[in-house]
Structure formats: C-alpha cells, structure tokens
C-alpha cells in the first residue's frame, strides 16, 4: 500500500452509485460503479472499498470526501459535506474540457442541462420536469416491454433500418405506442432506435445549446449510439469524457481538493 493523500467523490445516484478517487494531481486512480439499490450507505461503502483497492490506498489516506447525487445525505460514514450533482457534473466536465460548454447529463432518474462559461462558472442549468420521459428510467421501463435486456439496447438500435417515431411526452403513453408498433409488426431494433430518438428529443427540448456540447451520464456511457444520433440532430461533434458515468463523482472529488 502506498500512502499518498487522496480525495474522494461519492455520487449516490437514483440508479447507480459512483465513486472516484483522485490523487493530488487530479489523476483518477480508483473508481467504481454499482447499482444503488435500497441501502445507499452500504452500496457507497462497497464502491469506496473497490475504488480504494484499485487506487492501492486506504480510507485513512482520504484527505477529504464530498458526496453528491440523490442520496448525498446518506453517506455520513465517510462525509457530511455535500454538493449538488449540478455543480459536480459541471466541475467534473470542466476538468476534461476547460472551455465554455453545455453539458447534457442523462441519468437514471433525471436529466440535466448545465451551462458553463469559459472560466467554468455556471451560467444556468435545467433539470427535467417531474416526468421521467427522456431519462434512464424511461429506457428501463421500455426494455422489459420489448423483452430485451437493458444492456442490449445500444446494439439493437444500431441494427435499425427504419426507425419508428414515437410521439408522446409520457412514459406510459410511449409504452402504449410501443405496444401498438409491436402489434403492427415493426421490428424491435427500429422501435429501440425510436426510443433513443425520443430520449434525445426530450432532452433537447429542455434548453438551448452552446457551441461546445458535452454528454455524460450512465445512459450515455452504456449507449454510445445515443451520442452519435444526437450529433446528427444538432449537426456537430459532441465531446464525451473518458468516463461519462463518473463525471459527477470526479467533480465531487475535485471539490474535495
């Protein structure tokens, strides 16, 4: 075990818990992602353990830890210092792309659009409204309807030749539309791509975008096709950090420095 000062960011999301360990030079030396489940504290502990092992460090080496995300107040075993995921995603993304950016974060339960200026200061942000349409929860709801595993959606959407267009804002109404398309003999890949398109539409409706767009979040991490499709719609390249699911945790760890 090396004994070096480290900084921990713990992002307890509605769907997944993410931990990032940074060394004093902001290098990511340990990380983990686990399903949040029902015991946020236990999951965060497990993630921290994995991350520390990966970093070849111990808990006592942590100089400071900051938590973020939906369950940010549930990890008092390690820290009581919290920051919202809005700030942490901003901080995390800016460390990868230090310029004026608009961040699109598609998470398990909510979407965010965060705007940063050239200095990394936030000029505004939007979160999705009460509805889950356009979030990871939407895809999680739809996968069993189509009788496919969530993790196969990206590959299936890639096989689409004639994307189905879904019109509804509402997850439940969209499910009805999906059933209607199944009944009409539409192919599963075409429906899945339609679902991806629907997610993108819901997100792009939230706010305008600046020139440089960054996409993050678990949905983006597991479905790179979503980024490609968004690029086609907005007609420019999108920046994606090395670990799109970890930007919140990385941002929290940077705040801890």
């Amino acid at each position: 075990m090396t004994s070096q000062p480290i900084f921990a960011g713990i992002d307890v999301g509605a769907s997944r818990t993410k931990v990032a360990i940074l060394d004093a030079e902001k290098n990511l030396i340990g990380h983990a992602v686990e399903k949040s489940g029902t015991d946020f504290s236990a999951t965060a502990k497990a993630c921290l353990k994995i991350s520390l092992e990966m970093a070849k460090a111990e808990e006592k080496d942590i100089i400071r830890a900051i938590s973020t995300g939906y369950g940010r107040k549930n990890v008092s075993f390690i820290t009581q210092e919290t920051k919202t995921e809005i700030s942490c995603h901003g901080k995390g993304c800016y460390s990868y792309f230090p310029k004026a950016i608009t961040i699109i974060d598609i998470g398990g339960q909510d979407n965010k659009i965060i705007k940063l200026d050239e200095e990394g200061n936030r000029s505004g942000f939007k979160m999705n409204r009460k509805c889950a349409a356009g979030t990871g929860a939407f895809l999680e709801e739809m996968a069993p309807r189509l009788d496919i595993p969530l993790e196969e959606m990206n590959a299936l959407a890639g096989q689409s030749e004639d994307m189905v267009r879904l019109g509804s804002f509402c997850t439940v109404f969209s499910a009805t539309e999906v059933l209607e398309n199944i009944r009409n003999g539409k192919k599963v890949p075409d429906i899945v791509k339609g679902l991806f398109f629907s997610v993108i539409q819901r997100v792009l409706e939230m706010d305008s975008l600046s020139e440089n767009v960054v996409m993050t979040g678990g949905v983006v991490a597991h479905n790179p096709l979503l980024v490609k499709m968004t690029e086609e719609i907005i007609e420019r390249n999108i920046l994606v950090p090395e670990y799109p699911q970890l930007t919140g945790a990385i941002g929290a760890a940077i705040y801890a420095m």
Binding site: T84, E85, I86, S87, D110, R122, K126, M127, K130
Partner: peptide, 30 residues
C-alpha cells in the same frame, strides 16, 4: 424555475425542488 403547484401536492417533487434550490444557491456562491 420550480415545477409544482399551489394546492395539488401530487404535482410536487420535494427532492427535485431541493436539488434545484441547492444547486441555484451554489451557482450564486460561485
């Protein structure tokens, strides 16, 4: 902008409101 309602609490998400407000104050702090 906070989404909610004057009287119908079925339309209110406390967690969303809290995160939005905290994030807004963090923005003002910055």
């Amino acid at each position: 902008t906070i989404n909610g309602d004057l009287n119908d609490m079925r339309l209110v998400s406390d967690e969303q409101t809290k995160t939005n407000v905290e994030a807004f104050i963090e923005q003002l702090e910055e």
